[in-house]
Design a protein around this nucleic acid. Structure first.
Length: 405
DNA sequence: TCTGGGGTCCTAGGACCC
DNA sequence: TCTGGGGTCCTAGGACCC
């Protein structure tokens, strides 16, 4: 039987900011993106107490909490802390999965006895995090990732909870299904419409009923409601090998309608995507263009290429073809470019010898940008739009492909 | 002076092939 | 005098997560 620990930083970005700037401590703080049209990425617990929530726009947040202190997020600070946290976790087990910048799973099945048991590891880690970084973490423990996650969710902030296997059924009995990791609002609504309002009820629903409603997902739902989950804690090297897509999107400073302006943004996005793909040795066969209108209506179009690529201009070319096939009905608010069906390339970036010159050009540009700072050299057409500073995302990992470059 | 950005996984329908 | 049927690939969209 396994023992899994989930460590979840409380209001991570806001806590880091409060720690590095004492004037922010005890005050309602919201960490936001740098752009003009930004939302609250993380609210400190003081801000949450006043109703400020993740995803709120600034106008709304300030309206309900006029004394809100707004801080533009600094990604380097958070990834740096995350890297240090990982070093701490590795003292307790080699099986560490950095799930996101503020969450990590530890499989301590083999090592718990060396440290006086899971609860003791949890206590020590919490204490160390407080001592080293001055921030609170919530630690959940359980027989698998699902239950460890639940234990943390039920005890945050600053919590510590171990749900043992024999307690699982009791804890789940009256729990609303959407409390479980992987069951969202929509699914919960659907379940309620079937008269299923708790995990206990879901667990007792015949699998045939669930399968006929939800297919494969139905079987999974039942297992979740029983507290079952056999997904392994994945070490970092494993997870970076499995990347499925690389993409970038941006909400534009202003809505745009003119095609040349749209294309200038798309070249910038194509370049960011391909640069990242080249750094990690990936090439993609599917190219996706994402468009959001002023009305917030969002859609995507895709195209399969005949060979995988990470060449900025090949991707940009495909994106332009996709764009040319559209008839835009409204000004555009957001644009996105992503490549999928990824292949890992060993060493060589170009798959075909005739593209050798092109490959060397891209390599040279990448080297310059890595050495002298990103965007030291950019394609001329990307100069036109005003660049937005980088944005932050809790999903970024401190290393590997997910790192924003 | 509303509503970010990075992902994963699954489904469903149509094209196409045998 | 009729419209089989299974498998696979491709595309679009949505749910869910941090």
């Amino acid at each position: 039987m396994k023992t899994i620990i989930l460590i979840d930083m409380d209001a991570f970005f806001a806590s880091v900011e409060q720690q590095s700037n004492p004037a922010l401590r005890g005050r309602p703080v919201a960490v936001i993106g740098a752009g003009k049209r930004t939302v609250v990425t993380t609210a400190s617990y003081e801000a949450r107490a006043r109703g400020v929530k993740t995803g709120m726009n600034l106008y709304e947040a300030k309206k309900i909490c006029p004394e809100l202190v707004v801080v533009v997020g600094n990604n380097d600070k958070y990834t740096h802390t995350c890297t240090k946290l990982k070093e701490l976790y590795l003292k307790y087990t080699p099986d560490v999965e950095i799930y996101s910048v503020d969450e990590a799973f530890l499989d301590v099945t083999g090592s718990a006895h060396l440290f006086g048991g899971p609860l003791e590891i949890g206590r020590k880690i919490k204490k160390e995090i407080k001592r080293l970084f001055g921030i609170n973490a919530t630690v959940g423990m359980g027989p698998n990732r699902l239950i460890a996650k639940l234990a943390a969710d039920l005890s945050k902030p600053d919590g510590l909870r171990w749900i043992k296997r024999e307690e699982v059924a009791e804890v789940l009995e009256d729990l609303p299904p959407e409390q479980l990791w992987g069951i969202g609002k929509r699914m919960a609504e659907h379940l309620r419409s079937l008269g299923i309002c708790t995990c206990g009820e879901l667990a007792r629903t015949p699998v045939g009923v669930l399968r006929s409603r939800f297919g494969i997902v139905g079987e999974h739902l039942k297992r979740m409601a029983q507290g079952l989950d056999d997904s392994p804690v994945a070490a970092d090297d494993k997870e970076t090998e499995d990347v499925k897509s690389i993409g970038h999107s941006m909400t534009l400073p202003e809505d745009v309608y003119r095609i040349p302006e749209i294309k200038a943004y798309l070249l910038l996005l194509s370049d960011r995507v391909c640069f990242r793909a080249r750094q990690y040795g990936y090439a993609g066969k599917t190219v996706t263009l994402i468009v959001r209108y002023r009305s917030f209506e969002t859609f995507s179009v895709r195209k399969k290429l005949n060979s995988p690529t990470n060449d900025t201009h090949r991707v940009f070319g495909a994106i332009c073809e996709l764009l040319d096939g559209l008839r835009l009905r409204e000004p555009v608010r957001l644009l996105g470019v992503s490549i999928g069906s990824l292949l890992r390339q060993s060493g060589q970036l170009a798959l075909f010898p005739e593209q050798d010159r092109r490959r060397r050009l891209l390599e040279t540009l990448d080297r310059i940008n890595l050495r002298y700072g990103l965007r030291s050299i950019v394609w001329a057409a990307t100069l036109e739009p005003k660049r937005q500073p980088g944005v932050i995302s809790p999903a970024w990992r401190p290393e590997g492909v997910h790192r924003s470059l």
